[in-house]
Computed example of a mutant assay.
Amino acid sequence: MTAGNGSGGAERPSRSGRRPGQSGAREAILAAARARFADAGFDKTSVRAVATDAGVDPALVHHYFGTKQQLFAAVVELPVDPEMILRNIDSAPLNHLGETIIRAALGVWDSPAGPGVVAVVRSILAGSDDPALARTFLLDIVLERVRKRIATPEDDGRTRVALVASQMIGVLVGRKIIGVQPLAAMPAADLVAVVGPTLQRYLTGDIGQERA
């Protein structure tokens, strides 16, 4: 019962359409971002649009979450900043992209952050999370930068990165969720040696896309 709650209080009314910095603003931003990312994808979602949906100033979105990419990571509850992985992939020579991608992924999956990644994948497979968010993460964030590097005027690379995504999902599910042996116990270096060349072929080799 504070004095400011009475009808005669002198407090200025809060501005319509804008939430104060507290009072659930962070949760409202996450809910708005989840809906936007699921409906429009990563590229077509702006921080300003998320802020409008949440009823906050765009500066508050940046205050809580930093970049749009970090906001997405928070939405899907990723335990690691994707930029940490992407920097390594960006700097890899084109002819070593396959092994770099699988090595970077294994570095996360086998790290203390790994159980959080597995939990996210389990929730998607169980139908308790929106698969559109997983597609957005894989194709619009992680692999889009790779696609741009391998794209040519004749081949935009979308089929290639989709094949890479399918391979990575299979390895993750087999190694960390189902526990297929010997995949689950295989040393990371051995797995890189086996899977890396397959990813490389998907990215830069012959995948039989020639059209008559």
Rank of each mutant, 00 (worst) to 15 (best):
207 I>R: 02
31 A>Q: 01
61 V>F: 02
62 H>P: 03
42 F>D: 04
135 R>C: 11
46 S>A: 12
5 N>S: 09
81 D>I: 11
35 A>C: 07
20 P>W: 07
99 E>I: 00
203 L>S: 00
12 R>L: 13
40 A>G: 04
208 G>F: 07
61 V>Q: 03
60 L>D: 05
53 D>W: 02
212 A>H: 12
180 V>G: 05
24 G>F: 03
139 L>C: 10
98 G>I: 09
95 N>G: 06
183 L>Y: 08
142 V>I: 15
70 Q>F: 11
102 I>K: 03
64 Y>L: 11
168 M>L: 15
123 S>I: 05
79 P>K: 04
142 V>K: 02
131 P>F: 04
43 D>R: 14
36 R>T: 01
40 A>S: 11
25 A>G: 01
101 I>K: 04
172 L>C: 04
173 V>E: 04
74 A>N: 11
131 P>H: 02
158 R>Y: 15
141 I>A: 08
108 V>M: 09
118 V>Y: 01
159 T>W: 11
89 I>V: 12
84 M>C: 06
54 A>F: 11
147 R>T: 03
18 R>Q: 12
47 V>I: 15
210 E>L: 10
79 P>Q: 05
46 S>N: 07
41 G>R: 15
177 I>N: 08
1 M>E: 08
32 A>G: 01
136 T>G: 15
181 Q>F: 09
177 I>H: 10
4 G>R: 01
191 L>T: 02
115 P>S: 06
83 E>S: 10
47 V>W: 14
85 I>W: 12
124 I>R: 00
83 E>R: 13
171 V>C: 09
42 F>C: 08
125 L>C: 10
155 D>P: 01
4 G>T: 00
57 D>P: 05
56 V>E: 05
22 Q>H: 10
136 T>H: 11
134 A>D: 05
189 A>C: 02
35 A>Y: 04
47 V>Q: 14
141 I>K: 06
77 E>M: 07
18 R>S: 10
9 G>Q: 12
80 V>C: 10
171 V>L: 13
45 T>P: 12
92 A>S: 07
45 T>C: 10
42 F>L: 10
195 V>W: 04
39 D>Y: 03
158 R>M: 15
120 V>G: 00
85 I>V: 13
209 Q>A: 09
207 I>S: 02
22 Q>K: 04
147 R>M: 06
22 Q>D: 08
150 I>W: 08
48 R>C: 10
69 Q>I: 14
167 Q>Y: 14
36 R>K: 07
44 K>H: 14
75 V>F: 03
136 T>R: 11
155 D>W: 07
192 V>Q: 04
21 G>Q: 06
142 V>T: 08
34 R>L: 07
161 V>M: 07
137 F>S: 07
49 A>Y: 11
165 A>E: 13
115 P>C: 09
189 A>W: 04
152 T>E: 04
149 R>F: 02
90 D>A: 14
75 V>A: 02
32 A>C: 04
33 A>E: 03
75 V>N: 01
135 R>F: 13
69 Q>W: 14
101 I>T: 05
168 M>A: 14
77 E>D: 14
176 K>G: 00
114 G>N: 13
18 R>W: 10
203 L>G: 00
79 P>C: 05
